[in-house]
Design a binder for these strands. Structure first.
Lengths: 125, 125
DNA sequence: CTCCTTGGTATCTATTGGAAACTATCTTTC
DNA sequence: GAAAGATAGTTTCCAATAGATACCAAGGAG
């Protein structure tokens, strides 16, 4: 793509890619990004949809994704106030990969659970 | 693909896909999977390559990946003992997606760092 | 005898995650 | 007029996790 792509090494401690992975590779961020495909969604709507996420972690994760430019936050001065979250163009470039991961999990979970059972049988407590 | 694919909802609390994501969506697991593409690698070799990982977390994450059937662990009775980790066929089906994520991070980190700077300027402490 | 290697485990502390309660503002209900 | 309900969070507290460090056993090199 780029004429001169700098050769980053993901494994290096100070590699910027690592800084990006540190911030994005957690399950809540992935689930939220996946959920935001389609129309913008409100805070409590996401909270109700993604079962099991706490308000604190949702707020933290949304803030993190916003800070990294992947989602936008729009406040509507309704009563009560409405806040809509949506994917930015940058965020939209990531969702393909994210849903690929989700679909891989869905497709292979039987194999994974089988592996777990086999492991637990051969590795007693 | 499958004739009858059960309709799982990733956002549901008890969805098996969530259980899979819980186990695999962390940065160390992604880095290790990415590192294992190619030949099998020994414990301390991985540890030296992936800068900043502690022995404890490396051991834990390897055990987790092994339990989930993504990597294999082979012991060679050399002196000192040698332990080789390698991708299983199942693990190999995941590495495409994993490296897609790593490459996305590499490709877009400039945009991400720019977004961070912009956010920090408009959201003072 | 001492140091180095192998692949870990044990211990301790700092950070994070999750559950629940609380805030503030306005509308609707009783 | 008081209470409940919705909005989008913050605060507080406790449990779980992550990270740093030290330690273990077995043997080879010096």
């Amino acid at each position: 793509m780029t004429a001169m792509q700098q050769a980053y090494n993901v494994y290096e401690d100070r590699c910027p890619t690592r800084l990006v992975l540190d911030r994005l590779a957690d399950k809540w961020a992935l689930l939220i990004l996946d959920r935001l495909e389609g129309e913008p969604v409100r805070f409590n709507h996401i909270r109700r949809d993604i079962k099991g996420i706490s308000q604190k972690v949702l707020a933290q994760t949304l803030r993190k994704l916003e800070r990294n430019g992947l989602i936008s936050r729009t406040i509507f001065p309704t009563v009560p106030v409405t806040v809509e979250y949506a994917l930015t163009p940058l965020g939209r470039t990531l969702t393909d990969t994210v849903s690929a991961l989700a679909h891989w999990a869905e497709k292979n979970m039987d194999a994974i659970f089988a592996a777990q059972r086999a492991y637990d049988e051969t590795h007693p407590v």
